[in-house]
Amino acid sequence: MKCPLNVWQQESVTATALAEAAENGFSLLSFKSEKYTDCVLDIQKGSQKYEVLSIYSPRYLAQNHYIDLNIDRCDYLKIRYEGTRIDCSLLEKKSGPDQLEESEYKQLLGTLDKFVQHESWDTIDRDDGLEYKRYHGAGKKNYFAGYSQTIMKFRYSEKQRVFGYRKGDRFRVILIERDHKISNNG
C-alpha cells in the first residue's frame, strides 16, 4: 500500500531516519501514525526516487522481510493470517508448507488470501475453485480419526488440499497436502 503522496510532496525529510533509510535501501520501523502505518513511502532526493517501507505491524514486517528474518514458512503463515478467517496456529512443520516447491507455496498463499477475502462462509461454499467440502475418511484410511470436529478440506491447486476444521468464524488449518493421497481417501 502506498502512503498518500501529498503527505510527502512538500515535506523535507533531510537529516531524518526516512532519508537514511532511502539512501541505504532499508525499511523503517515506525510508531503508530496514520501516515506511517504499514505502507510504502515515496522519497525523492533531487531526481532520484526511493521507496521506503514504513513498518508498524508484525504482519507487514513478516510479509516484507520473512526471508531476511529467517522466518520459516509455517511461522510466516501463522503471522500472515493472524486475526483473519484462517488460523494456522495448529499447523505443524512436518505437515505444512515446508514440503512445498516455491511455486506451490505461492499458489497456497494466493488461495489462502482468496479464502480470507470472501465475504462469508456461504460465498466460500459456492466458490467452485476452492471446492470447500467435508472430508469423508473411513476406517484405517481416516487420517483424522482422532479429531472430534468435522474435518473439512479445500483445494489450492489441481492435486493439493488444505485440511482443517471450522471453529466459530475461523478455519483452523491442521494439514497441507501436496500429493492428494489423503484426499483420495475421503
Rank of each mutant, 00 (worst) to 15 (best):
S183N: 15
S120N: 08
V7N: 12
K140H: 09
C74N: 14
D169R: 03
Y165V: 03
D169V: 01
Y156S: 09
S157Y: 05
Y132L: 13
K78N: 09
G168S: 06
E11A: 12
D122G: 12
T84L: 04
L112G: 04
L53F: 03
I124W: 08
R161H: 14
Y76G: 05
S95G: 12
E34K: 10
K106E: 15
W121R: 09
G83I: 03
G83L: 06
K94V: 09
W8Q: 07
K159N: 15
D38H: 04
S95V: 10
R59G: 02
S183P: 07
V52G: 07
K93Y: 09
Q99H: 14
Q9T: 06
I151G: 04
I86P: 05
V40G: 00
Q48E: 11
G146N: 15
S120R: 02
K32G: 06
Q107V: 06
V7D: 12
Y156D: 08
V13R: 08
P58D: 07
I124S: 06
I55W: 00
H136C: 11
G83C: 07
R85L: 05
T123N: 09
G186A: 10
R161L: 10
Y76L: 12
A15E: 15
F26C: 11
T111M: 15
A62G: 12
S33L: 09
H118D: 01
E101G: 07
N142A: 06
K32Q: 13
S103D: 15
S148W: 04
L18A: 09
I151L: 10
R166N: 04
S89H: 06
D87K: 02
R85I: 01
Y76A: 09
C3M: 06
M1Q: 11
R126M: 11
K106P: 01
L29P: 00
F163H: 11
I67P: 02
D75E: 13
D127H: 05
S89A: 04
I151A: 05
Y143R: 12
G186V: 08
T16Q: 07
E158R: 13
L53W: 01
L41G: 02
M1P: 13
L53C: 01
Q149H: 09
E177S: 03
D98S: 14
Y132Q: 12
E92Q: 15
T14I: 11
K45L: 08
N64L: 00
N64P: 04
K133Q: 15
N70G: 01
H180S: 13
N70T: 00
K159Y: 13
S183E: 13
D68T: 02
H136K: 15
K2F: 10
E11R: 14
N6Y: 13
L100D: 10
R126I: 02
D122Q: 15
T123W: 03
N6V: 09
E158H: 10
F26T: 01
L28G: 05
N24G: 05
Y36A: 08
A19D: 14
L109E: 07
Q149W: 01
D122K: 14
Y147V: 00
D68V: 00
G164W: 04
G137F: 08
F31N: 10
A145H: 10
L28P: 04
